[in-house]
């Protein structure tokens, strides 16, 4: 009895929603709400870009700095009391950033590609179903934990191996230690995107190669990897661009000494760790220090933005390949 009346009530309710007038109204409300969600995220992004670039422009408008020495100068001493353009050369920061990005890429690209080949071509479904989630957990570890790991494990290890046994000076804060953890941090991303690209290579291509007497290794490296190459390159670029933008682990492990060095065992400062350093200090807003982080941030934004666009083009090319 109760069931029946419940059913009736639900039926009434449904017919209420389904009555054309109500339906139309709901549709309109939902449309506006969803549109709002979309617009909201776009507005926030636009706001960030505006605030970033307006402060950066204000920085470059100052008489104490100029755009040319900013991009060509080799000394970055923004906190010095001697405020001259020569102290605002961003190249040490860019070099520190690129050094860590390249070294971490040198770690993450081969390991990430290797694990992608393993997962896509060699692993059984069962093994893949265990390893892939594990890899993704690795991607979920907070980056500050990686930084701490670098300081408490990698750096002491480097000191034992290089300094005590080989007599090579290792700075307590050094680019190599930071690069190793950043490299490990971006392996899951490189592996996961590369694996997706490789799995998208049609099975028929693999069979065609096997039927010619190719071994599994030849099929993987000579057919699957080249066929998925644009997706794999996109994974590399996204990984590197993540390394460029990485902040916490690098600030902790590489220190904060802006320096034009090629020695990975020296302390360096990256663009992101400079921003952290100033943000944590008490640089008043509107001061030259406060504004310098926006100039650095805008440069960083431009770098990662360009890299992401390049990787998008690669992904698009890759999508077209088998249509």
């Amino acid at each position: 009895m109760n069931m029946v009346s419940n059913k009736k009530r639900i039926k009434n309710l449904l017919s209420f929603f389904h009555s054309t007038g109500m339906n139309d109204f709901n549709e309109k409300v939902m449309k506006v709400l969803l549109f709002g969600c979309g617009v909201f995220s776009i507005l926030i992004t636009v706001g960030i870009i505006i605030s970033l670039f307006s402060e950066a422009i204000a920085f470059f408008a100052r008489p104490e700095v100029n755009l040319f020495t900013f991009f060509t100068g080799t000394t970055w001493r923004p906190l010095s009391s001697n405020i001259v353009p020569e102290n605002f050369g961003v190249r040490p920061l860019i070099r520190g950033t690129l050094m860590i990005a390249i070294m971490s890429g040198a770690i993450a690209i081969p390991l990430g590609l290797g694990s992608a080949i393993y997962l896509s071509e060699y692993a059984s479904d069962r093994v893949r179903n265990i390893i892939k989630p594990l890899l993704e957990i690795l991607a979920g570890i907070p980056t500050v934990v990686y930084g701490y790991f670098a300081l408490s494990f990698i750096t002491p290890l480097l000191k034992t191996v290089l300094e005590e046994n080989l007599g090579i000076d290792v700075n307590f804060f050094n680019a190599l230690s930071a690069s190793i953890v950043v490299g490990v941090m971006i392996i899951p991303m490189v592996a996961s995107i590369s694996e997706d690209a490789m799995r998208a290579v049609p099975r028929s291509l693999r069979e065609g190669a096997y039927a010619l007497g190719a071994t599994k290794f030849e099929v993987s490296t000579k057919i699957v990897v080249p066929a998925a190459l644009s997706g794999i390159i996109a994974a590399f670029i996204l990984g590197i661009s993540r390394a460029i933008g990485e902040t916490m682990a690098v600030s902790i492990a590489a220190g904060s000494t802006p320096r034009m060095t090629m020695n990975p065992l020296d302390s360096v400062q990256t663009m992101t760790s400079f921003i952290v350093q100033v943000s944590f200090g008490d640089a008043p807003s509107g001061s030259i220090n406060g504004q310098s982080i926006f100039a650095v941030g805008a440069t960083l934004f431009a770098m990662t933005f360009i890299m992401n666009i390049i990787s998008q083009t690669f992904i698009k090319r890759f999508r077209e390949a088998y249509d």
Binding site: P202, S204, L205, E207, G208, G213, A214, I223, A227, Y322
Partner: peptide
């Protein structure tokens, strides 16, 4: 195979693939 499955390479490289790996 049922569906033509050339490799995404040049015509020449498609033929040369098998001999090369062998």
């Amino acid at each position: 195979f049922q569906k033509p499955n050339p490799f995404p390479k040049s015509i020449y490289e498609n033929i040369a693939f098998g001999p090369k790996i062998n």
